[in-house]
Simulated assay, not measured.
Amino acid sequence: MNKLLGIMAAIDRVLAFIIKPIVVLISLAVAFMLAYGIFSRSVLQVPVFGLEELVLLGAMWLYMLGAALASRERSHLSADFIQVICKNQAVIRVMHMVATIISLFMACMFATWSYDLLEWGISRGQTSTVLKLPWYLSQSSLFLASLLFIFYLIRDFISDLRDFCYPEQAKTTAVPEQH
């Protein structure tokens, strides 16, 4: 299990190396476009047509890649009340596995749905109103994020399973530390 987690950790480092700068660039671009749009509309009295389409496209990618990074660090929203009401580490580990399995199932459903949406968007050839950007540019963010969710949830399940089967190894984990 540790060898597989090591391979997944190496893949994770590459993914993080790619995704983090993209998130920063998209964040800066969205912030700049929003500020420019507000300045242009309120000070210059000249609306910038199509800017909202670019902001929406950037926001979709930013939200989905940000969610993937949260999944990577296991810092996404969760309701871990089991640790509050139960001190038995075996029960806590089982509940972590159950939660991961449920999340993995939901991520697979999300991947199926987002793939169907992406395929539909490509086949229809629909575009945005002003800039004529293909809809699949934003729809693809959903599909990519769902694949990343599945990758990280499989990693988390393997880690949870290892922690359950070998509690003495629970301290060493392939999940990156939160900063």
Score class of each variant (00 low, 15 high):
20 K>Y: 09
39 F>H: 10
136 Y>A: 02
69 L>G: 04
10 A>L: 10
96 H>E: 15
107 A>F: 02
58 G>A: 00
68 A>N: 01
8 M>T: 02
70 A>E: 03
117 L>R: 03
17 F>M: 13
153 L>A: 02
39 F>Q: 06
31 A>S: 15
146 S>Q: 05
98 V>Q: 08
3 K>S: 14
23 V>I: 12
146 S>R: 06
132 K>R: 13
115 Y>C: 12
169 Q>T: 06
27 S>W: 05
127 T>F: 04
85 I>R: 11
9 A>D: 13
97 M>Y: 10
152 Y>R: 00
116 D>N: 12
79 A>L: 13
115 Y>E: 11
24 V>Q: 07
149 F>Q: 03
78 S>M: 00
17 F>N: 10
132 K>F: 07
80 D>A: 08
9 A>I: 09
174 A>M: 03
127 T>E: 13
100 T>K: 02
9 A>Y: 11
25 L>Q: 01
108 C>W: 14
160 D>C: 10
10 A>G: 05
108 C>K: 03
4 L>A: 13
32 F>D: 02
131 L>K: 02
145 A>I: 06
73 E>S: 11
5 L>I: 08
59 A>L: 10
12 D>Y: 04
157 F>W: 15
109 M>K: 11
97 M>W: 08
179 H>M: 10
116 D>M: 14
156 D>N: 13
170 A>F: 08
9 A>F: 10
156 D>T: 13
152 Y>H: 06
119 E>Y: 10
33 M>V: 07
145 A>Q: 08
99 A>H: 06
136 Y>I: 06
95 M>C: 12
122 I>R: 06
78 S>E: 05
16 A>Y: 15
38 I>Y: 00
140 S>V: 05
155 R>H: 01
19 I>V: 14
65 L>N: 02
159 S>F: 07
135 W>P: 01
35 A>K: 07
36 Y>H: 15
59 A>Q: 05
87 K>N: 08
15 L>V: 08
106 M>C: 10
59 A>G: 07
123 S>A: 14
61 W>Q: 00
169 Q>A: 09
166 Y>V: 13
167 P>D: 05
48 V>C: 12
103 S>V: 10
44 L>H: 09
62 L>I: 02
61 W>M: 02
149 F>I: 05
131 L>V: 07
16 A>G: 14
57 L>H: 05
167 P>A: 09
111 A>T: 09
43 V>T: 10
84 V>W: 03
4 L>G: 10
61 W>L: 01
161 L>Q: 09
40 S>T: 10
65 L>K: 02
26 I>P: 02
96 H>N: 14
131 L>H: 01
85 I>S: 06
112 T>M: 14
60 M>Q: 04
113 W>E: 08
33 M>C: 11
35 A>F: 13
89 Q>K: 11
64 M>F: 04
61 W>K: 01
117 L>N: 08
73 E>D: 04
170 A>K: 07
17 F>S: 14
161 L>I: 06
105 F>H: 06
